[in-house]
């Protein structure tokens, strides 16, 4: 590990600690009212959803329109575990069960679906997402269209935050590992990846399953936050919402997905006073954003505090030295 790398590690850890403190200390001291708590939890759940969808859409380069379906599977599975098994540590177990159920669904759906490409894949994932919703609507044991009620509301901000940290950390390490590079190579050129000996189908399944797993975890967190589940909360519009987060953040950028998810969840809440005009503004913002920045907020780049500090330092030392620096800038 060289000096620059170590410095960036330290800066990132400090930033993470600051963010953690900013979120968890007020939560511990009960400084948030129920509304704020709800918004923060919902934001954290959406961050997991956006970051996991980013793995499929951004890194693998496959357009998936059924991510809410996996969230639904995870939500119902974890809710059923909490409702039926009263054991200690049942919450983490329930979340895990939700994640595993969604991952299993992802695997089952992935085998046929991932043979398709481009728009066809988008459409077939859309079909699966809708089928999950319709089937859940028609299972009386799961409450059906009348909602599943009485789920213990035990999702706390620290729990959701921990899940976010695990998810984001895993995505970062995956993205920079051998496996991540293999997944990236599929996005860049699938034929070339195949002929370079990369087991393309395996890596597609891996990315799809991991994404589904985290969507399931997010679903579990959502279920234990809301207390009731209705299948129609996981419709096509919801999948689109997550896709919008990924694209606005920049396809392939994990930090972009985090920022976009946080902004797009919190902003509508802050704009409540605009009431009727809120969605109109949202749609216009969406169109304008795409017209003027089609690659999203960050493109494929990652937001980095270290790099930002570096840029500030350079701006201060003047243009001449920065020009000299640029030669050995990695």
């Amino acid at each position: 590990m060289n000096a620059a790398n170590r410095k960036s590690w330290i800066i990132n850890l400090a930033a993470l600690a600051a963010l953690t403190a900013a979120l968890l200390i007020p939560a511990r001291l009960n400084m948030f009212n129920d509304y704020i708590k709800g918004v923060i939890t919902w934001t954290l759940v959406n961050v997991i959803m956006a970051v996991s969808l980013n793995l499929v859409c951004g890194l693998l380069g496959y357009l998936a329109l059924g991510h809410a379906g996996f969230m639904a599977v995870g939500a119902y599975a974890s809710a059923m575990v909490s409702l039926n098994w009263k054991v200690p540590l049942s919450f983490p177990l329930a979340l895990l069960a939700g994640g595993l159920a969604a991952a299993a669904a992802g695997m089952v759906i992935g085998i046929p679906v991932l043979r398709l490409k481009g728009d066809y894949l988008a459409i077939i994932t859309l079909g699966f997402g809708e089928i999950v919703r319709i089937i859940l609507n028609n299972i009386p044991a799961l409450g059906g269209a009348r909602s599943l009620r009485g789920i213990p509301r035990i999702t706390t901000i620290p729990a959701a935050y921990l899940a976010v940290v695990i998810c984001v950390a895993l995505m970062f390490t995956l993205g920079r590992s051998r496996h991540g590079r293999a997944i990236l190579s599929i996005r860049e050129d699938e034929v070339a990846a195949t002929s370079s000996g990369i087991p393309v189908m395996y890596y597609k399944m891996l990315a799809f399953t991991i994404a589904a797993f985290f969507a399931g975890i997010a679903g579990g967190l959502y279920a234990h936050n809301a207390g009731t589940l209705n299948p129609n909360r996981f419709n096509f519009d919801r999948s689109i919402e997550y896709l919008v987060m990924v694209v606005l953040g920049g396809m392939g950028s994990i930090t972009g997905a985090v920022i976009a998810a946080a902004v797009l969840t919190a902003l509508p809440e802050m704009l409540r006073w605009l009431s009727d005009y809120r969605m109109l503004i949202y749609s216009l913002a969406l169109i304008l954003m795409m017209l003027f920045r089609p690659d999203g907020l960050l493109g494929t780049a990652e937001f980095s505090i270290a790099r930002m500090l570096e840029r500030v330092r350079r701006a201060r030392t003047g243009a001449r030295s920065s020009r000299a620096d640029r030669g050995n800038d990695g």
Binding site: M251, L280, S283, L284, L286
Partner: peptide, 24 residues
């Protein structure tokens, strides 16, 4: 000439816009 997903998102934006404009 932008990435195709960008125009896809724009169509979604237009869809929301039409729905909300009519709603208003």
């Amino acid at each position: 000439n932008a990435p195709r997903i960008s125009s896809l998102i724009t169509t979604i934006g237009v869809s929301y816009f039409l729905q909300n404009a009519v709603q208003m």
